[in-house]
Amino acid sequence: MSDIDLTPSAGADVGSPATEAARPTLSGPPQRGGVKAFLPRLTGKLAVGLFLTIGISLFAIIAPYVTQDPRNYDSDRFLPPSGAHLLGTNNLGADVLAQLAEGAAGSLMVGLVTGGIAIFLSLVFGIIAGYIGGWTDEVLSLITSIMLVIPGLPLIIVIAAYLESRSLIVIAIILGLTSWAGPAIVLRTQARSLRNRDYVAAARVAGERPHRIILVEILPNLLPLLAAQFLGAFIAAILAEAGLSFLGLGPSGSLTWGVMLNQAMAHNAFQVGAWWWFVPPGLLIALFGCGLSLINFSIDEIINPKLRNAPAAVKSVRKARKAGAEVASSATPKEA
């Protein structure tokens, strides 16, 4: 190769400004790198999400030690909230707050285990099928498709009915084994798209091994999807567990939010007007889902950095419009 000289007098001075174009310039301080880059930035959304999720999780961990015995039936029935019973009592005279605390631990445990199993299986089946392709893809996709068309709830009912004693863990494992197929199909499609990106090809040319390409180059770009799916599996597990409990196939002898809702419904809490029995578990399910979604939005911003600037851009447009309106309304714009 030989340099093209735009200016004949510049000669062959390699690296001079004339031949090698102006040196690229940078603006602004570098954004964070290293381990910190993996963590979302603390925004209002993330703060609220973390507050809700951590708050409810702490409630599930700590409250059972502080509250009364959830299976002490000495108090009167259907007592409204008072100093002695902060959330009143249920049809048997048990303290609702104590039941809520123990139910939180049970529900979150089912959600976590189910979400974990579902995500792990969907990762194995989805990403390996999508990245490797060929016969591996055919076999793994076939298994995924079979799992997808098996109706979930009836299968769970059959399995749950077959098992004589059902602990929370068993329920969680059954739910996990029946809920991974949908996410796996989405992940497979996404992995198929990502494997054709140039940066994956570049990693292969650089000599990266397949497992590292999957884990380091492809997986981080799937994080928001995984987070969304984990969230979905989490919430779906809590609801499915409530559904099983409603049919009398829930965990035997354990308390969860689902069991509480089921008991409240079975014992006419709504007709009696005992809102303190069914509102708290329902509200906690909703708030927990809300908190996880807000965290999910923040994870989205790490993966797609363009989203970080979106709120600022909207704000500046709003500011400019306001300034424009002020200029139009008064001849001398005021200092804000």
Partner: peptide, 9 residues
């Protein structure tokens, strides 16, 4: 624009 992984430094 495609050959660098957007996730990594």
């Amino acid at each position: 624009f495609a050959s660098l992984n957007p996730f990594h430094s």
